[in-house]
Structure formats: structure tokens, C-alpha cells
Amino acid sequence: MSTSVTPMLPAGFTPQGFLPSPGHSLKPPGRTIGRTRRRHAAIAVVSAFMALLFVTLIAFHGYVAWIVAHPYVAPLTSNPKIAKGLDYTDAVFPSKSGRTTVHGWYIAADAAALLPAKTIAAAAGGDDQAAAAPVASDRTVVFSHGYGANREETWVPMYDLAALLHRLHYNVLMFDYGYASEADRSPATGGVEEAQQLLAAVQYARSQGAEQVVVWGFSMGAGTALQAALQTDASDDIDALILDSLFLPSPESLFNNVRQYLDLPRFPSLPLVQLMLPFWTGTSFNQIPAQQVMQTSYTIPTFIMHGTDDVKAPIATAEHIASSQLNPLSREWVVQGGKHELLFQTRPKEYIQRAALFLSQVDADWKSNQPTLTASAT
């Protein structure tokens, strides 16, 4: 018995010499390979473009985050002696955390302001003993400057306020936060490390003989003052707060301020900048106690002043914090038409009067609560 086997042939071919059957079209292999290669090349180009776009997006927002952490700050242009004829000494001390170093100027109070008239006359006549017995001040104001500025902050204007306090027999400490330091630069942390620098400045003022310390903050320096006052021992260190154009760092305030320079969409810009910030600062927004500040009623007297035309720091934040304060000396001043950190320039006379009145009331209240002072006075 024989068995025939029919060979299996490719479709479209006949047994005769494997010739294509009539009507069958066979594409040349080279053309198919060429189309496949072009398709793969197109996919590769698109993938490379998307990858480049993604890297560019990440790099751009990383740069924005770097700028936020390292703002440009103009160098110091003067000093208290040149600007207002005030003698000063250089102050250098570590932050309370020990991670950064703080540089500033310490201006001792005007001792002659409280000398009796006959003592001043004797000193003017050449009495060395009278001239060598100045009256030291136990009251100090520590200035807390704003973001993107240094201890001078000329538009406030800081030198004028220092001269005013000098005449009122206050010592004054002006210092740079790390992001503004020329000698020991460190990134801005939204108040986390800055609060440690401020507390160290307060401690320095105490080491110079201050029994009463008032922190006068501007913009983010005001928000930093509130963060510092949250510390458990801050009530023992800080006796009162003056807060001008209060700015409290938060994701929303960050985005609103960045939008003033770059018209970025909220998404994905805000999440990306927030994601990148810790790489440059070592801190995240979760570490900034903004909500705690908003909900705290501070035991120390707090004077909050804010302008209605402030586009950098929402007045609603200042009003909310002011409404939460229960200390009888705490108060709020809303300046109609006032712009961010330009309240002094808007109402200079009223600004000085209100600040001086607040300081005098704080001083009177502080003295009334000092048993040793009361006993010595009687």
C-alpha cells in the first residue's frame, strides 16, 4: 500500500516551481523593512521629545524652587554710623538650632536721653566722672526683616526706625537672616530655621543686659516672629510683637507671589515647586506651622498693622490672627491704601505715634509686673 504526501506550500504559491498564483501581489521585502524602520524612528523621536519635555519641565520648576530658596538680596550699602550717626558693634552668634550663623549690628541706647540736666551740663563742662556714668537701657527692640531683603530694608525705612528707638532709649539689634547673609549664606526655609535665628537674636539681646525684648517684624519677618513665639520658652524671651505687613508662608501665598513674576498655571507648577523645595532648603511646607499660628492666641501683647492694598500678603490672614488675640494690649491697625511694607511711607506720623504708644504701654505693663522694680521704686 502506497501513501502519497502532498507538500504544504505557502499561500498564494503553486507546486510548479513555487511560482506565485495569478493575481497574487508580493511586496518587495526592502519596502516593508523601510516602513518598519521609519515607524520605529518616529516613535523614538516622539519618545525623546516627550522625555526632553518632561526633563525641561522638572528642571524649570526645580530652578524656580531654587530661586525661592535662594532669593536675590542686594548687599549692604551702609551702616548705622554712616546712615544716622549711631554707634554700633558687630554681633555674630549661632542660631538656636546651631545649624547656621547670624550676623548683625547692636546699637546701644542713647544714654544721654535719660541723664539729668545737671549731669549733662557737667559732662559738657568736662567732668570726666559724670561723662563716664551713662545710663544703660534694659529695653531692646530686635528687628526681623522681610524676605528678599537684609537688615537695612531701606524702603521700610529701618534706619529711621532705629534712630527713633535710639532716641526713646531702646537698644536696637539689626541682623540678617541666613538667606540674606553675606558671610554665612543659607537657604530660606519659610521661617523654620529663621525662627531659630530670631530666637538666637533675642538671646543675644538678653546677653547684652536686656530685661525687656520687643520683636518688630516686617512681612515674612513678622510671620517668622509668630513662629518663634510658638516655641515653649518664647514667652520668657519675647515680651511683645510689632508686626508690619504680616506674611505667613503657605503653598497658596507662595504660588501667589511666584505668579507676580511668572505667569505659571497652578497645576502642575504648584505641586512641582513644593516637591522641589526640600531639595534646596531641607524643609517642606508641612514643617511650617502656619495653621498653628493662625489658631494661636498669644499671651504677649501683639500689634498688627496691615494695608488694604497689600497684594503680597492677604489682609484676611492678618485680620484673622488679630481677632484671635486676647491680651488687653494687643491691637490691629488697618491702613487704608497701605501697600506691602510701605505703611510708614503712607502714614509716617501716625505710624510713629501708634508704635510709640504701643511700646510705652508695653513698657508700663512690663514694669508693673516686675516685683523687684516695684519694690525698689517704693
Score class of each variant (00 low, 15 high):
V335E: 00
A149D: 06
G34W: 10
L19T: 13
A222R: 01
G98A: 13
E319M: 14
P80V: 11
P75F: 09
R139G: 06
P28C: 13
E211V: 08
G148N: 03
I352A: 08
P10C: 03
Q231N: 14
Y106W: 12
P265A: 12
V5P: 00
A195R: 10
V273A: 01
A117T: 13
G282A: 03
K118N: 12
G146R: 04
D233A: 11
I321Y: 05
S95F: 00
P71T: 02
M294Q: 07
L277K: 00
V273C: 03
Y179Q: 07
D87R: 04
G17F: 05
P268I: 00
Q227V: 14
Q196C: 02
A11N: 12
R331C: 08
Q291Y: 09
T189F: 04
M305G: 03
R266K: 13
I304L: 14
G223D: 11
E319I: 05
Y298A: 04
S207G: 02
R37S: 10
T140N: 06
L262R: 07
A83N: 06
M220F: 08
A121D: 14
F285T: 00
Q345L: 09
D244G: 02
T296S: 07
H306K: 04
L198H: 07
S97E: 09
Q129F: 13
S219K: 05
Q291E: 15
R37P: 00
F143A: 00
S47A: 15
R35W: 15
Y63L: 13
L53Q: 10
L165P: 01
V68T: 11
A123L: 06
A188E: 05
P271Q: 12
A133W: 10
L114Q: 13
L53F: 13
S25C: 10
Y177K: 05
A51W: 11
T281H: 05
Q336P: 06
N256L: 07
S97N: 12
K27C: 07
H340C: 07
N171A: 10
V141C: 03
T346M: 09
L254N: 07
A112H: 08
M174T: 01
A65G: 05
Q208V: 03
T89Y: 01
L199C: 06
F175N: 00
P328E: 03
E341W: 00
L277M: 10
A41H: 14
P28Q: 15
A318L: 11
D110P: 01
F255N: 01
V142C: 06
A290Q: 09
Q231Y: 09
M8N: 09
A74K: 11
Q295G: 01
F49M: 13
P134L: 11
R266C: 04
Q260V: 07
Q274P: 06
F358H: 10
L329R: 02
Y261N: 12
V92W: 02
W333Q: 08
R35I: 15
T308S: 14
V55R: 03
P328H: 04
L246C: 04
G148R: 00
L173W: 05
H340W: 08
L230H: 07
T154R: 15
N79I: 09
I321W: 03
A162F: 03
E152A: 14
H40N: 14
T372G: 15
I82C: 02
Y298Q: 08
F279M: 11
H320I: 10
V213Q: 02
N256K: 08
W155L: 12
V135M: 12
V141A: 11
L115K: 15
A313F: 08
A109N: 10
K96S: 12
P278K: 05
I315F: 05
L161T: 13
Y177D: 01
